[in-house]
Amino acid sequence: MTEEIIIAGFGGQGVLSMGKILAYSGLMQGQEIAWMPSYGPEMRGGTSNVTVIISDERVSSPILTQYDTVIVLNQQSMDKFESTVKPGGTLIFDPNGITKMPTRKDINIYKIEAAQLASDMGNQKVFNMIVLGAFLKVRPIVDNRYVEEGLRHSLPERAHKLIPLNMEAIEKGKAEVVKM
């Protein structure tokens, strides 16, 4: 099994940390991992994306042109990455801020109202965990208990009390993801 994922959105949406939590979860499950951020001169704001590869085999390059799963969280990322989903692959997006819906017919497209759900939960910061939940529902490549361990390893100790809230957000994402 090899799953090649890109998560793309605005800086500050938790794109990189979501990728890190996913990667750590894969690591806890005993898999080979690569996590590669797009690094540029921007400090905050601007677009941000991260490639995560979870595999049974040694990972070759973390720089890819096509992905099994593309997660887009803003319109710029949709414009840039819709075409990079492998035929038969998966596209997950949050419609909040999306003005042009995806048009491809040869891929599986899922929608998750993560921004709305996070605001309903009263905590914008769990936005990325709702998206992660949606991903894990559609592509169940990592077992739930490893996700929890992944959270434990990637969050600093002082934030460990927030793990139950994050797990709740992940469950929310799993429940609310919709196939288009």
């Binding site: 890190k20 990667a23 690591l27 991992i33 690569a34 996590w35 590669m36 951020p37 690094y39 390059s61």
Partner: peptide, 10 residues
């Protein structure tokens, strides 16, 4: 190089 410096692996 920039890839190995920036990339996270186990």
């Amino acid at each position: 190089d920039g890839i190995i410096g920036q990339m996270m692996e186990k």
